[in-house]
């Protein structure tokens, strides 16, 4: 059964449309909490700002390119994403956090954990796709990179010095090669 989209989806839309007033509201609600968490866990205000910005851009990307539909409230979702990001950073630096894991987040609903989990999985998937992309031949990489930029495919064909028909055929083949690489990886 498809879950109902939460009314806080409006914050996701605000990120997509760069609605400054609503994005400001997100900051008002959440920036202080993220800052306190990061400062309390061996970070500084710059770290907090970076984590906060990264999380918001991740949500934007997820919404724009993977059709993210929020099924939980935005605030706990964003806080959870930020906390996980910062705990991962600490892990990379081999620093133990003061806060033990997510014990302090037990009041957060299951939906929020699920949504944050999907976001984290998508990030991992992006890395896998990029690794597969890097294994393709140079011509395929060039065709895919140019095709994904968002320009009219006719223009891409012109830039690459090939016909439109050839570009489409080659792009399908290159994308198929990429999917095959992922398919083998999962076997």
């Amino acid at each position: 059964m498809t879950k109902k989209v939460h009314e806080d989806q409006r914050y996701v839309t605000a990120l997509l449309t760069n609605d400054v007033a609503l994005v400001n509201e997100i900051y008002k609600k959440c920036a202080g909490k993220v800052k306190s968490f990061v400062l309390f866990n061996n970070g500084n205000a710059d770290d907090a700002a970076d984590i906060f910005q990264e999380a918001l851009v991740d949500i934007y990307n997820q919404a724009k390119y993977k059709d993210l539909q929020l099924t939980c409230p935005f605030e706990p979702f964003l806080l959870l994403v930020c906390k996980r990001k910062w705990l991962n950073e600490l892990k990379k630096k081999s620093v133990s956090p003061v806060t033990k894991g997510e014990d302090d987040l037990l009041h957060i609903g299951e939906d929020t954990f699920e949504q944050a989990e999907v976001l984290a999985q998508q990030q991992e998937q992006n890395v896998l796709f990029l690794q597969a992309f890097e294994k393709l031949g140079e011509r395929c990489k060039e065709i895919i990179r140019w095709s994904m930029k968002g320009e009219a495919q006719e223009k891409v064909a012109e830039t690459l010095g090939v016909t439109y028909g050839y570009l489409r055929k080659k792009k399908s083949e290159c994308m198929a090669s990429l999917v095959k690489l992922i398919d083998r990886k999962n076997d």
Binding site: V57, K66, F129, K149
Partner: peptide, 20 residues
């Protein structure tokens, strides 16, 4: 999924720039 991820990585995204 692959198409979405690659678009995310390579698209020249003016809206994302404005948001940043």
């Amino acid at each position: 999924e692959a198409h979405g991820s690659l678009r995310m990585l390579f698209a020249y995204d003016n809206e994302r720039k404005s948001l940043v």
